[in-house]
């Protein structure tokens, strides 16, 4: 008896849990309610409301990803060089929120940002004007950055600590300045981590409906919200499936992107 047989249960789960469901969602996406073939559910993305939601989702996801990257990269550099106590402990502090339920964390921001919330009370006490960003795209971006920042920090930090110290020292010995070392050595060598982090922030931000619903108060409609509503409120499953297929195209693009840069899988989070 071959050992290969042991992968049987795994194969069963892949077929029943991944391949068949992907086939089913595709089937729903390209048929109408009566089961006849149609591309209307796919082309529906071009209608005003859907296009707007897709572009808004792309825009907010892009902004959140850039903000996360801009925050996480210097942080990774500082953590890499830090001699602050135990290095593992400092990293632990920045990763810890990731292990807490993200709906609780999003809820926390809702409490903070509310019109009579803590932030406005503090601002009022020190005589500053109110911050009215709840139920706006700004609040949604804030929530995305808060929720997904650890996903950017971890792969970037992992890539940074893998860089051989001798390479950096050699560059300094050969007369490079800090700027040059950063541009020519540290950034190029951390690309796998950056790409991994970018994907891990971009995909969930693009497809979220919970964050936009909780911090957008129903006023910020992303493509995820539109899809979710097709299954809960308006129950047009075919349209929802069709729009999901369009969204999957964007995920495939980002998978191709990660494949291109991360051939060795060095930036994997695990």
């Amino acid at each position: 008896m071959s050992k290969k047989i042991f992968s049987g249960p795994f194969l069963l789960f892949i077929i029943c849990g991944t391949i068949v469901p992907l086939g089913v969602i595709t089937f729903y996406g390209i048929t109408d309610r009566s089961g006849a073939f149609t591309l209307e559910n796919i082309t529906a993305i071009t209608t005003g409301e859907h296009m707007e939601a897709l572009l808004l989702a792309l825009g907010l996801a892009l902004i959140s990803t850039v903000i996360c990257l801009v925050i996480a990269f210097p942080l990774g550099l500082i953590l890499k060089d830090s001699k602050l106590g135990k290095k593992g402990f400092m990293v632990f502090i920045f990763i810890l929120p990731m292990w807490m339920n993200f709906l609780l964390r999003t809820m926390a921001w809702q409490v903070l940002l509310e019109r009579n919330g803590i932030i406005n009370q503090v601002l009022g006490l020190i005589g500053l004007p109110d911050l009215n960003i709840i139920n706006t795209p700004t609040a949604v971006v804030l929530g995305m950055v808060y929720d997904y920042l650890p996903f950017m920090i971890l792969p970037i930090y992992n890539a940074l600590i893998k860089i051989d110290k001798n390479v950096i020292e050699a560059a300094y010995d050969l007369g490079a300045g800090y700027r040059q070392v950063l541009q020519k050595i540290i950034i190029p060598l951390s690309v796998p981590g950056i790409v991994s982090g970018v994907t891990m922030v971009f995909v969930p931000s693009l497809t979220t409906f919970a964050v936009s619903n909780m911090l957008g108060g129903g006023k910020v409609n992303l493509i995820g919200n539109i899809i979710e509503q097709e299954f809960t409120a308006s129950s047009n499953w075919n349209l929802g499936a069709g729009l999901s297929l369009v969204m999957m195209i964007f995920i495939v693009i980002s998978m191709a992107f990660i494949e291109k840069f991360d051939r060795n899988g060095e930036g994997n989070i695990i």
């Binding site: 068949v20 409906f209 299954f231 995920i251 998978m255 990660i258």
Partner: peptide, 27 residues
Amino acid sequence: VFMGLNNIPLLNADIVTGISLMLSFLL
């Protein structure tokens, strides 16, 4: 090939995974 298939649920968006499973169960 199997490792590639293994990566699909990891890289796919949760909303697509969730919806596709729901549709399959109901179908």
